[in-house]
Write a protein that binds this DNA or RNA. Structure first.
Lengths: 253, 253
DNA sequence: GAGTTTGATTAGGATCGGCTAACTTTTTTC
DNA sequence: GAAAAAAGTTAGCCGATCCTAATCAAACTC
């Protein structure tokens, strides 16, 4: 008469996939989303495995109809694959918001924990958290949280700080970094989402910034990962210039 | 030059162990704790694998110094193994309390989710949750939560309802079941922890109970898993009779 | 205490997801 | 556009964890 609890709930569809498989789908999605092209090598770096392992896994995912793939080319998600990937991104960002707001995690601590939890929480957990936080639409890094229906709003009006010309004003909206040291630096410089900034000058090695009275240099590497809203105050009558040239470098969850 | 986030935090010692290994240790602990003796077969049932797999895993755990074992005998945990097991039990019960209190899970929903999360949360998560709940000492089923220092209070004064003689009065303190249907039944009968009861009579197939005015039969199978405190009201001058004969059947987290 | 039943172990495989080394294809360079 | 460099793939292997079938040990039965 003992049962010991089998697994049985099919959730939405992300069940039955191993955490590893989920990770691959997520990273393919994030790379494509950042218009980077999900190449074998980039995936290997993001996931932390060797390129050969990526090839192997992509074959398996292709067989299951989750990705489309031609040898030596970048992969793409099928509709099914995309749904699962977005689901996981939702888990991740919702968890980040939760860890930060409810459990009092520091800004730079949330990513790692969410990374572990995202593959494991149930549909119910997701819903309860969303409820508790009143359906948040941003995680602590400013990344948009996909809705329950898996719609993901894109931040078309955001620009990489690295590309802003001298004199621009704006508000930091997203910080697309996950490296602990880099996050610490961002925090020390007080460049968290919501911060109003002004570009005092551009240099080959970075951007000179005017923020809260003081002026300092943001290294180019960092600047590429700070996404700025250039029409922050409704007062400024700028009609959303739409400068979608350079690819935003974002690689993040 | 590829790093992409290895695992590195040694937590306390439960890190580096696979979820599967953690599960084996936990179940060995729980069985021994319930004075059941961790036999190959019982473990196989609890964990949901075949006996042959248990033998294999126990060998590996023995090599790592986590269990002590002689062929054809029940296993025991080493001190190291025990520490890890208790750590996981703490995770589990803390998570159950958290899911119930903070996220509003129903009483019978917490077990399954905690089962999945317990292997994945960090030391930090554990601490934050303990903090948020002000170091709870019971989970929703009444099971004691090991302290941060991994001390586990035993409920020596609790008796199985199944063994109570006619006329006994007491309070339900623990429900050591995990089967969903059984839990539902317990809830329908309103026999949750805290409930005051009185034994109206004993039968071979169960116990006749007087609770809240009404009288009904609790099947023996259920009764064995309801742990009762027989000296509930300080008013009743009963000097705690200490009938510690029969083994409490508990198998639970 | 011999035989039977029950429980545990061994042997041999399968699958998953990773790895290295060698090879192939694509891209870049001049 | 040929050679070199970079990226991707294949082949073969490993360890973890599970399985089934067959064998072995322990525990009851009478």
């Amino acid at each position: 008469m003992n049962d010991a609890g089998e697994g049985r709930e099919p959730h939405k569809g992300s069940a039955s996939l191993s955490p590893s498989q989920q990770d691959y789908l997520k990273q393919i999605f994030l790379l494509n989303d950042a218009s980077q092209g999900a190449t074998t090598q980039l995936l290997a770096e993001r996931i932390g495995v060797r390129p050969a392992s990526v090839t192997g896994m992509l074959k398996r995912l292709a067989e299951e109809g989750l990705v489309e793939r031609a040898p030596y080319r970048a992969v793409h998600l099928t509709e099914t694959g995309r749904r699962i990937a977005v689901e996981i991104v939702r888990h991740h960002r919702l968890l980040e918001a939760f860890l930060s707001r409810t459990l009092g995690y520091r800004w730079d601590e949330v990513h790692e924990e969410a990374e572990a939890l995202e593959h494991v929480i149930s549909e119910r957990f997701e819903q309860k958290v969303a409820e508790l936080l009143a359906d948040p639409d941003r995680d602590p890094h400013g990344d948009p949280i996909p809705t329950r229906e898996l719609a993901l709003k894109e931040d078309e009006h955001l620009t990489t700080l690295a590309l802003l010309p001298k004199g621009s004003r704006g508000t930091i909206r997203r910080v697309t970094l996950q490296d602990q040291d880099a996050l610490n630096l961002v925090e020390r410089l007080d460049l968290l989402p919501g911060r109003a900034i002004e570009v005092a000058g551009t240099h080959p090695d970075g951007i000179s910034l005017l923020v809260g009275g003081s002026r300092f240099l943001v290294p180019a590497l960092l600047a590429a990962h700070l996404l700025v809203d250039v029409a922050p105050h409704p007062s400024s009558a700028q009609p959303k210039t739409r400068e979608g040239t350079g690819r935003p470098v974002a690689h993040e969850q």
